[in-house]
Each structure stands twice: as structure tokens, then as C-alpha cells.
Nucleic acid binder design. Structure first.
Length: 419
DNA sequence: TCTGGGGTCCTAGGACCC
DNA sequence: TCTGGGGTCCTAGGACCC
């Protein structure tokens, strides 16, 4: 059995934890640079506020409806996320953290003596008691069914936060009440094409012939059909597998026109991406650096990218940054108002501690990296960093509606007055 | 005044090779 | 009468996720 646990409207819920004054109000959270709405609390959802729309376009409507908007406060969300993940991990032998607000649990053949429903309720209670985050819990014998049950736990009436697919009747009931576009792995495009074949619900998709689905769509969608029928195709090891590519990209708070600013941004991304690389015990054989202006600006679209191949695999922030810095010289063009830049590590390999190569000399300093990661894990990201990323970044993102970092900064601790 | 997210994986098609 | 291979690498774009 697998479980999928996720926090509903995670970012918006986090904002409510330490600010009682907005608990009963509609709240939305914005993406980087206050660009788009990326999280909507249940009250705002009922008002019909859509996700992934530019904030400035919706602002008049939000003001009219009295919706509270907040900038993304990642420091707060990642801290609460860690607490939530730690609590969930207590309930099963294995956990996979799928995103900041979602995690899978794998139970193997274990069956809780209180039953799955009671077990799910206990997880929900524990997370609520210890973090004040509302979570949905779904159980199923495949990852896709666990996802479906999780969806049902929040969207189908009668479940109140916990849904279990352990019997045929429950499977049928949930899949029949679920749109095909809500199935894990079925997005907007595919569901439109499925609709042309008369497939509108998850149940109808589960009844389709996998061989025909494979021919008309892809092997992945055919796997999904099997998974909906309780036949596992997406394995635990696969979802836990290390990433094959790692990207770090961001739009700037204001347009960047100087090569120094662009270099600082790129080197900052190298720090973020190489840390992710080390966290999964991998190394990379190459790096791509890219930057472009905005399609919304008046100038013609400009985008350039450059790739560097390393002579031997590396995960050293310094080695990666210095290669990236040279690539910036290749892609920079004076006069371009850069809107976004980033890097990608494209060819990722497993770390081999004692790899011998007579001709390629590694410049990696694993001890230094371990030390740097240790300090940053303990004292917070960017306690120490590669100097090339600059100390005061002029292009830093706009976050005009930022709430305090209640749980990670002493100076920003919440204070409640009792009368 | 101006403003438009971030990440991962896959595939089709072009360019090139023999 | 009509017909023409097979492989690798790279890139842009599509699709999905949250």
C-alpha cells in the first residue's frame, strides 16, 4: 500500500498559521517577483480565483473581493514543510518527498491494525496538531491510485480529508467521480484528446485498452491505465531515482543589462543547482547557461545559450561556477534588457568516489563542499557562498507583500498579546 | 510606473556522419 | 509501375507537475 499526503493550498495555509487575522479571509500567495498567483486557500478557491494568472491583471478583482495577497515566503514554507514531512515519516517505513507540499509513503505489506481509514485520520490529526497545516491523505495500491484517493479526500464529498482505495467498490466510486484531467499524468492537452474518444472520467480511462492508448498517445499514458486498475507500473525506486537534469532559473526583479549582474545571477544559480546535485550524490558532465529578454517587452526576442563539457564529472560549486562565468561572456550582448537567466546540469551521473582517469584531473574539493553544505544546512542557506554571486544583488526579486519569517529568524518571531 | 513562476522529462526533426 | 538506409547528436518545443 502507498499513501499520498499533501497540504491543501500549502503556501496560503502557511501564511494563516502565524497570522490569525487572515484565517477566515480569502488568501492567495504570489510567485517570485509577485508575478503570478500560485496558491489559493479554500475560501479564495470558492470565490473562483484562478491559479497561474499574472497578479497585476487580477489585482483589481482581488481588491474588490477583499482577498489578501502575500509574496512567496520560501523560508517559512520550507521550514513548515520540513516539519510536516518529519511527522509523516513517522507513520511508514519509507517516505519519498515529492514536492514542497506532497509526500508518498510506502508501507510494503504492512497493514495497520486500526485499519487504513483510522490510520489516515491519525496522520491528519498529527500534522494538524503539530503544524496547524490541513492535509489530505489518500491510500492506494499503486502510486496513481494513491494520488486519486488523495484527490478524492479533498474533492469528493463524504471523505473529509482521508480516502482509501482498498476495495473494488471504493475504486469504482472514486474513479467514476473523478475527471480524467485530475488523473496524475493527464494534463490539459491529453484530456482534450481523450475527450474526442469519449473518455471524460478516470473510470472511462481505466476501461480503455492499454495497447490502443499506447498507440494513440504514449507508453506513459498506457502505464497510467494499468495503474488505475491496480497494476503497478510506476515503481517506488523509479520515483525515488535521482534526477537526470537539474535546473535553476529565475526572472529578475528588474531587467538586467550589465554583464556583472548577469554573472552574479548565474553563479548564484550554480550554487543552488550544485547543492541539489550533491544532495543526490551525483555529478555532472556539462552545464548549459542561458539568458533571454521578455516576450512581453517591445524589443525583438533575444535568447542565447552556451554549453560547457567538463573533462571529468564534477559537483564542486567553484568548478561549476567558474565554467559558467566563462559561458556568460559568450552569451552576453550589450543593449539587451535581460529578463530571465539560469543554468541547467544536463548530463548527470552517479558519483564515483575513486574514479581513476589518467588524463582528466579533477579539481573538485569534496571536503570543502561537505564543510560548506554542513555550515549552510545548520545556519541557513547562503551563510557562506561563492563570492562571485555578489553580496548585494541589484536584480533581487520583488517581494513587496512579504510576511515575517516567523520560524527561522529570532527578530521575526510572532508575538501574540493576551488581553 | 511597471508588472507575466519554476522544474523535469520526452520527442520530433534537423544536421551530420558513413 | 514505383521505388532510395541507418545511426548519432543536438535543439526547440511540447507535455506534464506543483
Amino acid at each position: 500500500m502507498f499513501a499520498l499526503i499533501d497540504a491543501s493550498g500549502m503556501y496560503a495555509s502557511c501564511e494563516k498559521v502565524f497570522d490569525p487575522s487572515i484565517r477566515n479571509r480569502p488568501v492567495v500567495v504570489l510567485s517570485n517577483n509577485d508575478g503570478c498567483i500560485v496558491a489559493v486557500c479554500p475560501i479564495a478557491k470558492k470565490l473562483g480565483i484562478p491559479k497561474f494568472q499574472p497578479y497585476f491583471k487580477l489585482k483589481p478583482k482581488l481588491d474588490e473581493l477583499g482577498v489578501v495577497a502575500r509574496s512567496s515566503n520560501y523560508e517559512l514554507y520550507s521550514d513548515l514543510s520540513q516539519r510536516m514531512m518529519n511527522i509523516c515519516a513517522r507513520f511508514a517505513p519509507e517516505q519519498h518527498i515529492y514536492s514542497i507540499d506532497e509526500n508518498f509513503l510506502s508501507y510494503g505489506h504492512y497493514v495497520p491494525k486500526e485499519g487504513w481509514l483510522a490510520h489516515g485520520k491519525e496522520i491528519r490529526r498529527a500534522v494538524w496538531r503539530e503544524t496547524r497545516l490541513p492535509v489530505g491523505v489518500g491510500f492506494g495500491c499503486t502510486l496513481t491510485l494513491a494520488k486519486a484517493a488523495n484527490h478524492a479526500s479533498k474533492r469528493i464529498s463524504g471523505y473529509q480529508g482521508v480516502a482509501v482505495i482498498a476495495s473494488e467498490s471504493e475504486r469504482v466510486h472514486i474513479l467514476q467521480n473523478m475527471l480524467v484531467s485530475d488523473v496524475w499524468g493527464i494534463g490539459r492537452r491529453i484530456s482534450k484528446r481523450l475527450a474526442l474518444q469519449g473518455i471524460d472520467t478516470a473510470w472511462q480511462l481505466s476501461k480503455a485498452m492499454p495497447s490502443i492508448i499506447k498507440k494513440d498517445f504514449s507508453i506513459l499514458i498506457a502505464h497510467t491505465v494499468h495503474e488505475l486498475n491496480g497494476n503497478q507500473r510506476f515503481s517506488w525506486d523509479e520515483v525515488k531515482a535521482p534526477k537526470k537534469q537539474i535546473f535553476s532559473t529565475r526572472s529578475f526583479g528588474k531587467r538586467v543589462t550589465s554583464i556583472l549582474d548577469l554573472k552574479q545571477a548565474i553563479i548564484m544559480h550554480c550554487g543552488i543547482a550544485s547543492k541539489k546535485l550533491r544532495n543526490q550524490n551525483s555529478q555532472t558532465l556539462n552545464i548549459i547557461v542561458f539568458a533571454h529578454n521578455s516576450i512581453h517587452d517591445k524589443e525583438p526576442f533575444f535568447r542565447r545559450a552556451a554549453i560547457h563539457q567538463f573533462s571529468c564529472p564534477t559537483s564542486d560549486s567553484g568548478v561549476i561556477s567558474s565554467a559558467a562565468g566563462k559561458l556568460v561572456d559568450q552569451i552576453f550582448k550589450p543593449g539587451i534588457r535581460f529578463y530571465k537567466a539560469g543554468i541547467g546540469l544536463l548530463e548527470i551521473v552517479d558519483e564515483k568516489p575513486n574514479q581513476q582517469d589518467l588524463f582528466a584531473v579533477s579539481n573538485d574539493r569534496p571536503n570543502l563542499m561537505t564543510c560548506m553544505d554542513g555550515i549552510n544546512d545548520r545556519y541557513g542557506r547562503n551563510t557562506i557562498f561563492i563570492a562571485g554571486q555578489g553580496i548585494e544583488q541589484k536584480f533581487a526579486m520583488r517581494r513587496e507583500l512579504l510576511s515575517p519569517r516567523y520560524t527561522t529568524r529570532l527578530a521575526e518571531l510572532p508575538i501574540f498579546r493576551c488581553n
